[in-house]
């Protein structure tokens, strides 16, 4: 008796299963049909890093060449190069100073940053995205918030070279939104 009951119950479960898939069959697709549609939540996606421009000069980065990102990066994929400009006076010097940018607490406590108010100029900022693990530590440790995440997900390349980014050039070539 119980065997037959169990069997009938089991057979009913098979019909219930068919009902579920049958219902789903009639519902519309839920996948994003890629080349025709695109996902909508890219703004929260953390892609590779990008330099943040100065508010007044969109072609120049906020970066003060403190090289903390280079130091903290677990994969060693950031290279920052800069120089201390020679004798510069007047307005040119004033431009290089970024004292108008408020430093976060942690940076103000740091002797390196606080002391020389960064007369250094960024010459090159390269990111080897092949080795980046997208942890975001560089963005977090930047004392002047000069790094941000891009939401670049449509990445395809023919060689590794394609993912060695020159971020400074990216910044200079970036189109300014009006």
């Amino acid at each position: 008796m119980t065997t037959i009951q169990k069997t009938l119950k089991g057979l009913w479960s098979l019909i219930v299963g068919l009902k579920v898939t049958g219902k789903e069959f009639c519902k519309p697709w839920i996948t994003v049909h890629y080349p025709r549609q695109e996902v909508t939540n890219l703004e929260s996606y953390r892609g590779h890093i990008d330099l943040v421009p100065r508010p007044d000069e969109p072609k120049k980065p906020l970066c003060i060449v403190c090289k903390r990102c280079e130091e903290v990066c677990p994969s060693g994929c950031i290279r920052v190069e800069g120089h201390v400009p020679g004798e510069q006076t007047g307005e040119a010097r004033q431009l290089l100073l970024i004292s108008n940018v408020p430093l976060p607490n942690s940076a103000a406590r740091d002797p390196i940053c606080a002391a020389d108010k960064t007369l250094r100029v960024l010459d090159g900022f390269t990111l080897n995205y092949n080795y980046c693990s997208l942890c975001g530590l560089c963005v977090q440790c930047c004392p002047v918030s000069s790094l941000t995440f891009s939401s670049d997900v449509y990445l395809a390349g023919g060689s590794r070279r394609d993912f060695e980014y020159d971020l400074l050039r990216r910044l200079k070539n970036r189109k300014i939104k009006v």
Binding site: N41, Y45, S133, C135, G136
Partner: peptide, 28 residues
Amino acid sequence: TPILYAFDDREILMDILQIPTGSRLTYC
């Protein structure tokens, strides 16, 4: 079929977790 139904829900979860973490799988 069930794995794709599970992924349906999981995609939503990953979208949610992407908001604070910025990534979808290997969170840091």
